[in-house]
């Protein structure tokens, strides 16, 4: 998939993370390359969200190291590191007391961009994520769930970060809205070529959006596969996922014929 010569944008080096008596992550090694969408797939508690939060240092590893653009996370300036990484979470976390414009423009503002440039950027981003310009003056509570997550994505893209971390961003949306946002994510990614780490427990979403799928279980990385290889994989866990997702459709289809 990725040209072997380029160095990874994000690199997990033998990372472990434990909290109290629970080993959340152990011996985790993974490289994420420029412009790819790496999906972390696994069930709840498998350590995928933890891995994500280690990248922007919302969490600090117990041992091992994470390098972002070649620089160890330990040596990086925390605030600079985070401002260079877009972060999108399932609950969106829009600021309820800010208009949509202020929500999207917050990082540019604290980075000291001039007002006019922020305004233009916000309009540009609203268009990018498929929202009408008039929405800029509204407040988050006046928006639907799908619109809110579009704003969440726009906010993450505001200062044009090279890296995007997405933690089940479409998990709380209804299936049709989710489908819409997934489709738009693919179109967006074709244009922007961000380095994306995407967390999900939905195999369908992983297959659709990922250029590679990292399968996780109980704090360990099981395997990393391209979507087409995932479907052919003989790995028992991968096979179990395919069975679980296939069964829903099959049983529905069978019910229709019998």
């Amino acid at each position: 998939m990725q040209p072997a010569a380029t160095s990874p944008v994000i690199e997990f080096l033998d990372v472990s993370y434990r909290v109290a008596d629970t080993q959340v992550l152990s011996g985790f090694n993974l490289q994420v390359y420029g412009g790819e969408t790496l999906v972390l797939l696994g069930r709840s508690g498998s350590g995928k969200t933890t891995s994500l939060k280690l990248v922007n240092r919302l969490l600090t590893p117990t041992s091992g190291d994470i390098r972002v653009k070649g620089l160890s996370n330990k040596d990086a300036d925390l605030i600079r590191l985070r401002r260079g990484i877009g972060y999108v979470i399932q609950d969106v976390g829009l600021f309820p007391h800010f208009t949509i414009e202020r929500n999207i423009g917050l990082v540019p503002k604290i980075e000291g961009w001039p007002e006019e440039r922020i305004r233009v950027r916000v309009q540009e981003l609203l268009q990018t994520v498929g929202l009408e310009p008039g929405i800029a003056s509204r407040y988050p509570h006046q928006l639907s769930g799908g619109q809110r997550q579009r704003v969440g994505v726009a906010r993450a893209l505001a200062a044009d970060p090279e890296i995007l971390l997405m933690d089940e961003p479409f998990g709380a949306l209804d299936p049709l809205t989710r489908d819409e946002l997934q489709r738009e994510f693919l179109l967006l990614q074709q244009r922007l070529h961000k380095t994306v780490v995407f967390v999900t427990h939905d195999l369908r979403e992983a297959l659709r959006l990922g250029s590679r799928i990292a399968l996780m279980e109980a704090g360990r990385l099981v395997t990393v596969l391209a979507p087409e290889d995932f479907l052919r994989s003989t790995d028992p866990l991968a096979a179990a996922y395919i069975r679980a997702f296939g069964e829903g459709l099959e049983s529905a289809a069978n019910r229709g014929t019998s």
Partner: peptide, 18 residues
């Protein structure tokens, strides 16, 4: 204050005083 709001704010690189 909604935990998601605080997490998003930290994640996007707000300092503690911001």
């Amino acid at each position: 204050v909604d935990a998601a709001v605080v997490e998003a704010a930290r994640g996007m690189g707000l300092t503690e005083s911001q």
